[in-house]
Simulated assay, not measured.
Amino acid sequence: MAMTLTTPNTLLGLYQPKGDVAKLASNFATIVLGTLLITACAKINVPVWPVPVTLQGFAVAGLAAAFGARIGVATVALYLLQGALGLPVFATGGGLPYLVGPTGGFLLGFLAMAAIIGHAADRGASGKPMALFAAMLVGDAALFALGFAWLLLLSGQAQWLDQSNVVASAFAKAVQPFILWDILKMALAALTVSGIWSQLKK
């Protein structure tokens, strides 16, 4: 366990190489490939303002559920670093200004989402659809909370907000329209991971 970033309760843990060096190489490759998946899902988006509709949340939830908290958080952290360095990995580009803009809180919230869902996966939720779905909803709620809080911090500079009622305006425009879609994405992610787990266990 000292040389691995996942647990036997995750999909990656089921097929970890036996050698320590091979385990670390496998973990690193998984993290890099995970960032490519998140990037691809970020590009599948509907460009609405201030927060575009993307499949990033589906990708982060699925990766964390399949690989556990350490791999999940490390993947998101590398993805955010790539974006901060200017690589066009986000929905409409990259760079530090992107991280401090309206979507910055949601992007950082992916770290919390990955930690919560990955924690549940490390404890055996990957093979339990309802438990995994519940963990994903909690992780998604944490994502929304951080993203919403960030928007409120930026509210004084946001012309798209009704300054007479900032809280309600930010919720109505940047949170409420996404709730149903995110529930559906979390359900799909939970069913996908638990379905793969079930087939592999057979």
Rank of each mutant, 00 (worst) to 15 (best):
Thr30Phe: 15
Pro102Phe: 06
Leu151Trp: 11
Leu161Ser: 01
Ile196Phe: 10
Gly57Trp: 04
Ala141Cys: 09
Ala134Leu: 03
Leu132Pro: 08
Ala115Asn: 05
Pro8His: 11
Val21Asn: 09
Met136Thr: 08
Ile44Lys: 05
Leu99Asp: 13
Phe148Val: 03
Gly86Asn: 11
Trp160Asp: 09
Ala84Thr: 03
Val175Pro: 00
Leu111Lys: 05
Asn165Gly: 07
Phe178Asn: 05
Thr7Gln: 01
Val32Ile: 14
Leu12Ile: 01
Leu188Lys: 01
Leu107Ile: 14
Leu151Asn: 05
Ser169Trp: 03
Ser194Gly: 10
Gln82Met: 13
Leu108Pro: 06
Leu96Val: 11
Leu99Arg: 11
Ala84Tyr: 12
Pro102Gln: 12
Thr35Lys: 07
Met3Leu: 13
Gly94Ile: 10
Ala149Ser: 12
Leu81His: 11
Asp122Pro: 13
Gly127Glu: 07
Ala66His: 10
Phe106Val: 06
Leu200Ala: 08
Val60Glu: 01
Ala120Lys: 04
Pro47Ala: 08
Leu152Met: 08
Lys202Arg: 14
Asp140Tyr: 04
Ala190Asn: 01
Gly68Ala: 09
Ile196Ala: 13
Leu152Cys: 04
Gly93Tyr: 11
Ala158Asn: 12
Gln163Gly: 06
Thr30Asn: 07
Met1Gln: 12
Trp160Arg: 09
Arg70Ile: 06
Leu37Phe: 14
Gly72Val: 02
Ala135Trp: 08
Gly72Pro: 02
Ile31Cys: 08
Pro50Val: 07
Ala141Asn: 02
Gly19Met: 12
Leu24Thr: 14
Leu5Tyr: 07
Gly95Asn: 13
Gln163Met: 08
Pro8Gly: 10
Leu146Asn: 03
Leu184Ile: 15
Asn9Gln: 15
Ala120Phe: 12
Gly86Tyr: 09
Leu81Lys: 06
Ser26Lys: 13
Ser164Phe: 03
Leu154Arg: 04
Ile183Glu: 03
Ile44Gln: 01
Gln16Ile: 02
Leu180Met: 10
Ala59Lys: 01
Ala189Gln: 04
Thr103Ile: 11
Leu80His: 09
Pro50Cys: 08
Leu153Thr: 06
Met130Trp: 15
Cys41Arg: 06
Val193Phe: 04
Asn165Tyr: 04
Ala114Tyr: 09
Gly83Asn: 05
Phe90Ala: 02
Lys18Gly: 15
Val73Met: 11
Ala172Asn: 12
Ala168Trp: 08
Gly94Arg: 10
Ala42Phe: 02
Lys201Gln: 14
Ala2Val: 10
Ala74Trp: 12
Gly101Met: 06
Leu107Cys: 05
Leu146Ile: 09
Ala112Cys: 10
Pro129Cys: 10
Ala61Lys: 06
Met186Thr: 06
Asp140Thr: 15
Ile196Asn: 09
Ala74Glu: 05
Gln163Glu: 09
Gln82Asn: 10
Ala134Asn: 07
Pro102His: 05
Val60His: 05
Gln199His: 13
Ser155Arg: 00
Asp140Gln: 14
Gln159Asp: 15
Ser194Leu: 12
Lys173Gln: 15
Thr103Ala: 15
Leu161Val: 08
